[in-house]
Design a protein around this nucleic acid. Structure first.
Lengths: 216, 216
DNA sequence: GCTAACTAACTGACCGGCTAGTTAGTAAGT
DNA sequence: ACTTACTAACTAGCCGGTCAGTTAGTTAGC
């Protein structure tokens, strides 16, 4: 037995579920739910399809597990961060959005958004769960920051929900894009100063007095 | 033969392809490519699956046809409009975005974006075509308007491509959203004054002198 | 320490259902 | 009557899910 297949045939009950989930995440994101074969998932995790069924009841259960436990820890981490920086909405919003991008949007996890968008029609219950447990919590965080900015007189008053979308959707769309069509065409990378332009733009929309806040 | 099936068994060579394409569009948008059965497409168009194969060579050919000829006419129409309003970038951009929303984003056609996002990985050539023939042309139109605004000294200078994304992605994401997760949850409708907030926000990001332009 | 009896993680051949694609036949229109 | 749009029954093969059997690892007895 060579070293490269040292894990094959080995009994490793602890590691299997997460390895299978990781393999499934990658393939679901790449191909979508229906087009992903469980044989391929198992093969990518270095086991047989039978083993997969020792840990997951069905393809749909695997899907749920992938969505649930790949994403939830991230949301937990972000909610913690908010508590730390309460008084400075501008800086908090900026750091929150950058953190979302770095830890979620720009990684494989961003693909889960594309995946849910694509499969919501076929898995309404999973979509509802995702909507509540991920999107809802993240939206609440963002809205909270925006609202506190308004209350402090730093942001202009207005529909908080709409402002949340205007602030977040460019980033979300960027992530979704990277995980779909961007892979099929000669891609121009994100412009060097994308985030400068992005933050400049949204803070002009948000701030009461953009000129004095923005340049520092 | 009842009146409701009067078209059944009737020979209507002219009408079939577009009826089949319309049926396919609706089902593809709802279920995705892989999960849509051709029997269902044919049934929805009031014919049998065999008839479908008289007009389309394969499921993938049907997919291509749906994407291609449901979307291209719209882009044509929009490109014409731009020529008419050249001198007023603010009004032109506003009307362009509203028109995109009314004729595309808020209709079934908006679902094609979600569909392409979902299936790009499985149909790279179709995605490349869509990217060039639809996204590319539409982006060029938007970038042209923004650029002319900058040249006229009305919009602030900056990365045109990034500005295009910041302006358009909220609307695009809204459309994608409506065609996926929104259908699975108790949906709050779009806020009454969504577009007021939206235009206010993006023009603050774009304009050199927002205060004097915006209120009229 | 060595082996034998035991446990359970893992395998892969198999089955059944489902659906893309085919074709022999039917009937509408002329 | 002849053409051809259309139908419906069919086939082929793929894939989710199963299970009888295999083998890695563990414990007990000597």
């Amino acid at each position: 037995m060579t070293s490269t297949e040292s894990t094959r045939h080995r009994r490793r009950k602890e590691a299997r579920p997460s390895e299978l989930a990781a393999a499934a995440l990658a393939l679901f994101v790449e191909k979508g739910f229906a087009a992903t074969r469980l044989d391929d998932v198992a093969a990518r995790a270095g086991v047989s399809k039978g083993t997969l069924y020792l840990y997951f009841d069905s393809k749909e259960a695997l899907f749920r597990a992938v969505i649930e436990d790949s994403v939830l820890p991230l949301i937990d981490a972000i909610e913690v961060k908010v508590a730390a920086l309460k008084d400075d909405p501008v800086r908090l919003l900026r750091e929150l959005l950058m953190e979302w991008w770095e830890r979620f949007g720009s990684t494989l996890l961003g693909g889960t958004c594309k995946l849910m968008i694509a499969e919501a029609g076929n898995f309404p219950e999973v979509a509802a769960f995702f909507n509540e447990a991920v999107i809802g919590r993240w939206s609440t965080v963002l809205c909270g920051v925006i609202e506190s900015g308004i209350e402090q007189g730093v942001f202009r008053p207005g529909s908080v929900e709409t402002m949340r979308q205007l602030v977040f959707y460019p980033l979300l769309m960027q992530s979704v894009w990277q995980h779909s069509i961007a892979g099929c065409v000669a891609k121009r990378p994100m412009p060097e100063n994308y985030f400068d332009t992005y933050f400049d733009f949204i803070f002009r929309g948000l701030l009461v007095a953009p000129e004095q806040e923005i340049q520092r």
